[in-house]
Design a protein around this nucleic acid. Structure first.
Lengths: 203, 203
DNA sequence: GAGCATGTAGACAGATCTGTCTACCTCCGA
DNA sequence: TCGGAGGTAGACAGATCTGTCTACATGCTC
């Protein structure tokens, strides 16, 4: 994996060999994330996916079904990238700074020109009122993200609490990088301060 | 101010005495925050505000003008509540824990049944692609929020950095309370851990 | 008393949205 | 061989969206 999968650039896979269902999912992944769910109409999706309306509705009887499928797909993709990125940066890890891979992984993500924040936070913001289940989907995503962070910490009963606080800081960094309060560098610097203060030398 | 102003319940002010422009703004504040900007059509706004379409478009030539006015209005309202809440909780402040008022203020907010996250984070998530200026509006909001947090800290050159890290944690707590990862109590507990670790005893 | 700002009621235009429909094609496995 | 899964093209329905239009009323100010 030389390039994080969330970046996009999946268009090349969206050719006629790829099954229609997957092409729709790839188009949704691209457009929903980049422009938002409500801003993306079914007509634009079918053009981007290169399918017809009948095919679209055969696979996803309602647009909300595609929204759910998109979030499930995104979850798998993002978690795979996240865990791989943490693993890749483990070389930078030391006993003094076990969360260093977390910072480096997020720095990668934030610098990506396609970065538009967390798809799950965005989905809750956009659809939380109309489609309450996206809150539960987003919560499950955040729980998995927190578990991956906990995996960086030494085996200790207090690791769960530290991981929760670190995950909190990560979510804060994501939204601050997204709005660009102090630039992505500012978000990363504040994240470093917040993570660095946590008691990671347990035991 | 016995009740935070952001809670809503402003309907009683939306009577015929109130000028039409303010009634529209109050209706937008209610509906945009509760259900989202894109989910709220002009037709619903004019019914909620009790004005006609001509009046609406006389004050706000395009819906996006109302979006901007809504965000400016919300900023004033929220900041006034936030600063007042911090002041109200200053009694709980000690030299050991200067950020205690921050936690208590956010606990108030999160427990509110109308709580639906930060209107600015939500607006960026929903409109960041289509209306890029909301990112700058949200960034300005976050800068003011950070300045209010800095006001809790002792006068010290390092206070700015600590305030940035604290603001990062606050944003994280807001989105986690919004998605309900571990409930609002979990968000508050993680916030307490993240804030408690920061070096607030400066100088 | 003229002009202007502010308000009312409601029809209308034109775009776009989700979702349905008919009609036809192709490939594969029982 | 035949039936079903999966595909194509594109018209259509019905709702909803933003924004415009005519026509009229009221009250303030110069």
């Amino acid at each position: 994996m030389d390039r994080p999968v969330y970046i996009g650039g999946m268009e090349e896979r969206r050719n006629l060999e790829t099954p229609a269902r997957e092409r729709i999912l790839l188009a949704a992944h691209d457009l929903f994330y980049r422009e938002g769910v409500r801003a993306t109409g079914v007509d634009r999706l079918i053009v981007a996916a290169g399918v017809t309306k009948v095919t679209f509705y055969r696979h996803f009887p309602a647009k909300n079904d595609l929204v759910r499928a998109f979030l499930a797909y995104r979850h798998g993709l993002w978690m795979a990238w996240f865990e791989a990125a943490l693993e890749r940066h483990r070389t930078a890890q030391s006993a003094d700074d076990p969360l260093a891979p977390l910072r480096l992984a997020l720095a990668e993500w934030f610098e990506d020109p396609q970065f538009r924040g967390c798809a799950f936070i965005n989905a809750v913001a956009e659809l939380g009122g109309a489609l309450p289940e996206v809150r539960e989907i987003a919560a499950a995503h955040k729980r998995d993200m927190t578990a991956a962070i906990a995996g960086l910490l030494p085996d200790d009963p207090r690791a769960q609490r530290v991981a929760q606080a670190a995950a909190l800081a990560v979510d804060g960094a994501i939204v601050r990088a997204q709005t660009g309060v102090e630039g992505t560098q500012g978000a990363l610097a504040a994240l470093k301060d917040a993570l660095g203060a946590l008691p990671t030398r347990l035991g």
